[in-house]
Amino acid sequence: MIPAPFEYLAPTTVEDALAALAEHGEDAKILGGGQSLLPVLRMRLNAPEMVIDLGKIESIRGIRDDGDAIVIGAMTTHAAVGSDPLVAEHAALVSRAVDHLADAQIRHRGTFGGALAHADPAGDLGAPALALGAQFVIAGPGGTRTVAADDFFIDLFETAIGEDEILTEVRIPKHTGWGAHYEKFVRVAHQWPIVAVAAAVRVEGGVIAEARVGLTNMGNTPLRARSVEEALVGVQATEDAVREAAGKAADGTNPPSDLNGQASYRKHLATVLTRRAVVTAAGG
């Protein structure tokens, strides 16, 4: 599999990357870790004339503590996110999701920003980002803007990032002390989830005080199961108590039907996986 011919640039600053993007317009494509873009090019599903590689821009790689949030640079690899102690402590849900994302090789090349920018509804990072209320920092010709997770995911493979913009970092509000679990349902280990549920809960005295639940592959974008979250507040952190709230997980969702399962089956899975995710997150 050989891609169609293209030109290649590897700028070292965000400014230079933006300038290149401005110059080449819609003929250009941003390259993050290439784990989604390269298959697209190699299968000739797309043929950009210019590929702008962000791999040499140091300023958007790495993880830092920024007071009430953890900031993850767009070019930080999945493997780096997965092994980072700050993320583990303050955004454990993200660590759990990354643990089972694709396989080890892909985790060492694929990037946090690339995966979110790609916005595959079956991608593992959208639901945790949504559930934790992440903020997306986007740089463009007119400067930098910040978009809330609720407004970031627009449709299948479509985000708030404009054609002339670059996602530079993602700010994740600290959820220190929250229990977290990402329940991913697959047939083989290296697969995208058929359905997955991201759950973070704060338990006080055996009772759920706050809950955040995100759903993967239950619609054209990652979804937040707000009715489940509300129903969980004040509930005992036990399987039977959680069951009823989890039963609402599929409400209002519109999952796909594909080789791995029909929509009706996915809706059923969402309820079971939500219950399991919440119970595990709560330490049950």
């Binding site: 494509k29 989604s36 697209v40 599903l45 797309n46 043929a47 079956a122 796909p256 594909d258 080789l259």
Partner: peptide, 16 residues
């Protein structure tokens, strides 16, 4: 059902 489209429309640009 169809294959899951993890790559297809990836970019909003016409493929060849």
């Amino acid at each position: 059902g169809a294959a899951a489209a993890h790559f297809d429309p990836a970019t909003g640009m016409e493929g060849t």
